[in-house]
């Protein structure tokens, strides 16, 4: 089992780790020849799961991974430790002359990811090397097979959201009305966030002129009836889980696509960088809350 790669895009790696840290204490890193996946499968107390997949070329160069399980390595790591290391890396030396290598190593009986940074710039501490190790828990392929991405029905709506920071401000105010927020959208560019108090006070914010991405239907997908474009599909969400998700606004630039499976869940695709660059996607699954009197 071998892994070694030069980290070329510390900024993106750090931003991804920061986003994930907000959601879960631990995550699984799955390294395979094509991509690095960062997964929080167990969800946090709000049941939010993250499944992210980043092309290895976006973060690394000289990327080498080898194992008996289709050259794939899975390890569990504490997200705060990862964030701390990446924060240090992001601030040591200069981006232009810095070289960081990440590799899987052994420290005593523990498996660790080590991050070694050297700066070629002679003025920077004359080639001093900074090394960090983070302990990881290796996950065997058998165990990894049990970790499955949640199954969701075909979403009723796909929509490019307003900037997450903008939605976050609104969400903060909606929270004063209720801890449950209704997230809904239609197929003609509208997205609505609303909350209602027990006394019947309601606050409702609607964005219009949003864009719908073109989604290729799966081969086996049954032909859907032409939908009523104006019909809103919604899910009742816990404000806390939405706020946790909105914190991923740390990734810049970003585009976020929301998919609503009515009264079931919200799937958020957060693109790292521009969508067309295809750097990678963080996928957040946010389960809907159920209420007795809901619909």
């Amino acid at each position: 089992m071998k892994f070694r790669a030069a980290v070329t895009n510390v900024k993106h790696f750090y931003q991804v780790a920061q986003s994930i840290e907000k959601v879960a204490k631990k995550c699984i890193i799955r390294l395979s020849p094509a991509s690095i996946e960062i997964i929080c499968p167990n969800g946090n107390e709000e049941g939010v799961q993250v499944w992210s997949k980043i092309n290895q070329e976006d973060l690394f160069s000289d990327y080498r991974v080898q194992s008996n399980a289709a050259d794939t390595i899975c390890a569990e790591i504490a997200t705060d430790a990862l964030v701390q290391v990446l924060r240090d890396l992001a601030s040591s030396g200069k981006v232009e002359t810095r070289e960081t290598v990440m590799k899987l190593a052994k420290k005593g009986t523990d498996a660790v990811f080590t991050f070694e940074t050297r700066d070629h710039d002679q003025t920077w501490a004359k080639g001093l090397t900074v090394s960090h190790s983070v302990r990881v828990q290796m996950i065997r392929p058998v165990e990894m097979e049990k970790v499955k991405e949640p199954l969701c029905p075909d979403p009723d709506v796909h929509i490019v959201t307003p900037p997450l920071k903008e939605m976050r401000v609104v969400l903060d105010r909606l929270k004063a009305y209720s801890s449950k927020i209704r997230f809904s959208a239609n197929n003609s560019g509208e997205l609505t966030l609303s909350a209602e108090t027990d006394d019947g006070e309601e606050l409702k914010t609607t964005w219009t002129d949003l864009v719908h991405p073109t989604i290729e239907a799966g081969e086996d997908a049954p032909p859907r009836e032409a939908p009523d474009l104006g019909q809103h599909f919604g899910a009742l969400m816990s404000a806390a889980s939405l706020l946790k998700f909105m914190n991923t606004a740390v990734i810049t630039p970003t585009t976020c696509i929301a998919c609503i499976c009515e009264n079931h869940c919200l799937i958020m695709y957060v693109y790292i960088g521009e969508v067309l660059e295809q750097n990678g996607i963080l996928t957040f699954y946010l389960p809907a809350r159920l209420t007795g009197d809901e619909d």
Binding site: T197, D199, G200, E202, T205, T206, W207, T208, D209, L210
Partner: peptide, 11 residues
């Protein structure tokens, strides 16, 4: 902004 609006109903 032109593409965003909020409606609030206070009891």
């Amino acid at each position: 902004a032109p593409n965003v609006s909020t409606v609030c109903e206070l009891t």
